[in-house]
Design a binder for these strands. Structure first.
Lengths: 231, 231
DNA sequence: CCAGTTCTTACGGACCGCTGACGGATCCCG
DNA sequence: CGGGATCCGTCAGCGGTCCGTAAGAACTGG
């Protein structure tokens, strides 16, 4: 995924708007998912963890502001809001809730696409700067710096190993099958699952005390792998 | 059951469509059931609890939207809708009622199969993420982590045992015969029922205090088994 | 006491994950 | 531009686990 493209979740109840927005965002190189109401938005968000959310304020059921608030409870995902002209109150409320930008209807889809790209770029830079440090037991991982230490000494991880480790650290305690990992870490929808097996093995050799008796990365028989804490 | 295959209920009144859809879904590894109208759909759904429903909007009798609405009353089962081109109103209504995706007729059966697979995968992920921790007496089962504890110590359950236990825990107090368990847990329509007997026995040895005098998994003589609480 | 049903045990094959090795691609450095 | 090192994905063999089946024993209800 390039520097200024990403997976975008579009939430709008008007199917015409959705289709137009989709076309322009895809033209800009983004991967687009569409939903029509707040419930679906929250559900889809949990499933896919998109890089950015385009959110209409007027929605049936759970309204846009509420969706934004709930997203913020569990994620720092950038949000671009769609508001009707003159709904200043809503716009202010939206920005207070942490929207990163807004576009007023009627809007030019071209402009929306530009804003999405720009917000995405800003947030990537910011994310890299505020690089979180994940840690677990004697393991410490600096995501921004892309470096990792085990009991004080630095590990030399390859790109894949690092990504895999970060995924595990950010999804502790949940079992994933190989296809899922292939999709989430590699970004593949299909492919040889033994790829995962081999990379897990190589990662284990670096982060486990005894890679023959893994403690952190547990094998879930007939399913896949699960990261348990090292503590 | 693979991570991207499952039992799919197809609801369409056109027998030609049904056959084509069936062929492609089976090619993709799914298990397919066909019905021709809304009444049958609801009935079959109650009997089989499929993993996904492909629903035509134009149906004789109870129409597709109504079927979708009623399904949503009692289940979060993923729904993929078939709509005629241009039925925008219906599509909007469908998505609002909680359809997870839609395909417009005339459609490519290949594309439909792809969407079914993809929706299925997503919904599995979401299900695992929102993973409830089931508990009962001293028994605790974390569905997402695929691990279980009895009185604080972790149980080592095999895949089948785990699935069987989860099924029991989510269907407490109801008796099931072996054929039904074979169908719901194994996904088989036929097969040796002693398979169930043996697995129940193995499960009992792990979750019962005295497996010769089972408390949780009761034998219903002449019928099958029933999960009673451990409390 | 009998017939039907469930329990128990044992076993062989299927499946799965682990391991080591290999060739191609990519990256880096000269 | 060229050569070497690294990394990546694939594969086949192996060892262990798990699963389904069968067959005899024990039990239940009539």
């Amino acid at each position: 995924m390039g520097e200024t493209t990403g997976r975008v979740l579009v939430v709008d109840d008007d199917v015409t708007v959705r289709d137009v927005v989709r076309r322009y965002l895809e033209l800009a190189g983004h991967e687009v998912e569409l939903v029509g109401d707040g419930e679906s938005a929250l559900r889809r968000f949990a499933e896919r963890e998109p890089d950015l959310v385009v959110l209409d304020l007027m929605l049936p059921g759970v309204d846009g502001l509420e969706v934004c608030r709930r997203l913020r409870l569990r994620s720092a995902v950038p949000v671009v809001m769609l508001t009707a002209l003159g709904e200043e109150e809503d716009r202010i409320a939206g920005l207070q809730l942490g929207a990163d930008d807004y576009v007023t209807k009627p809007f030019s889809p071209r402009e929306l696409a530009l804003r999405v790209t720009s917000v995405l770029r800003r947030s990537r830079v910011a994310a890299a700067r505020t690089a979180s440090v994940l840690s677990d037991g004697g393991l410490r991982v600096d995501v921004g710096a892309r470096s990792a230490w085990l009991d004080g000494r630095e590990l030399s991880l390859t790109t894949r190993e690092f990504d895999l480790l970060v995924f595990f650290l950010t999804h502790r305690g949940t079992a994933f099958n190989r296809g899922e990992l292939l999709s989430r870490v590699w970004g593949w929808e299909f492919g040889d699952q033994s790829t995962v097996t081999v990379h897990v093995r190589r990662l284990r050799e670096k982060v486990e005390v005894d890679s023959a008796r893994p403690v952190r990365i547990a094998t879930v028989w007939g399913v896949g792998y699960r990261y348990d804490g090292g503590a």
